[in-house]
């Protein structure tokens, strides 16, 4: 069982490396959007600092939406996905492997990039660790919840827009808790509660989404 998980993770990571152009795209988008805000909105550092948590979080959310469609697309097209559903190991575990590797190649680099970009938005330095922590949790729950949407729309040729519409409402709480955490930290208010809620949301998603995703994949593949 452990061997299968290790093989699946290794496969996903090598595939991500070989298709790295696909994954650099969202990161590039994140950098570009965030760096356009100071140019387009204002150069006033106090105003920017006020907006920084929201800008960073909205950009992070949008850029991880960009890569979601790819989560199951290639495996669906070449037939690997149906073999995964027929595998001798629970497909939920395989799906969880896919979600985690998706997060490792999109959410994690985005989190590591965020301190550099927060500098550009004049976010107070003391808020940066909290920003990273919230992005770490938040991007994981984006990958988890996004996998359900990706599974539902993978059978459609052009599912990108539908995917966004489907999962956006469920992602709004992540955005709210994420921004509030950083905002509270930046303005010296208690922030632990928001982060705890974000963590609870992620934990809930971690427990539920593999089952929902497999159910969605069964519907998509079984048509």
């Amino acid at each position: 069982m452990i061997a299968v998980l290790r093989t699946t993770l290794a496969r996903e990571m090598t595939l991500a490396f070989r298709r790295r152009a696909d994954l650099l795209n969202p990161l590039f988008f994140f950098v570009v959007v965030v760096s356009l805000f100071p140019i387009g909105v204002t150069l006033d550092l106090t105003k920017l600092a006020l907006m920084a948590p929201g800008i960073l979080w909205v950009s992070a959310l949008l850029s991880s939406l960009l890569s979601l469609d790819l989560m199951f697309r290639n495996d669906f097209d070449d037939g690997t996905l149906e073999q995964m559903l027929l595998a001798a190991v629970p497909p939920q575990l395989l799906v969880l492997c896919k979600i985690i590797s998706h997060w490792l190649v999109t959410g994690l680099p985005l989190t590591l990039l965020s301190p550099v970009l927060s500098l550009m938005l004049a976010l107070p330095a003391k808020a940066v660790p909290v920003l990273m922590l919230s992005l770490l949790l938040g991007t994981l729950s984006l990958s988890l919840i996004g996998s359900v949407g990706a599974a539902l729309t993978v059978g459609l040729r052009k599912g990108g827009l539908l995917l966004t519409i489907l999962i956006m409402p469920i992602l709004v709480p992540v955005l709210i808790f994420g921004t509030s955490t950083v905002q509270a930290m930046a303005t010296d208010q208690p922030w632990q509660g928001y982060l705890a809620l974000l963590g609870a949301f992620t934990a809930g998603a971690f427990a539920l989404t593999p089952w929902l995703t497999v159910a969605a994949l069964n519907v998509t593949v079984g048509d």
Partner: peptide
């Protein structure tokens, strides 16, 4: 073994990797 209409061959992987993964999905070594 179910050999489907879509051959479950990942184009970005080598034949050896494809075969090893198919085997791993069956929990066999």
């Amino acid at each position: 073994w179910y050999l489907a209409h879509r051959p479950a061959v990942t184009l970005m992987q080598t034949p050896l990797e494809n075969l090893a993964f198919a085997l791993a999905l069956h929990n066999q070594v």
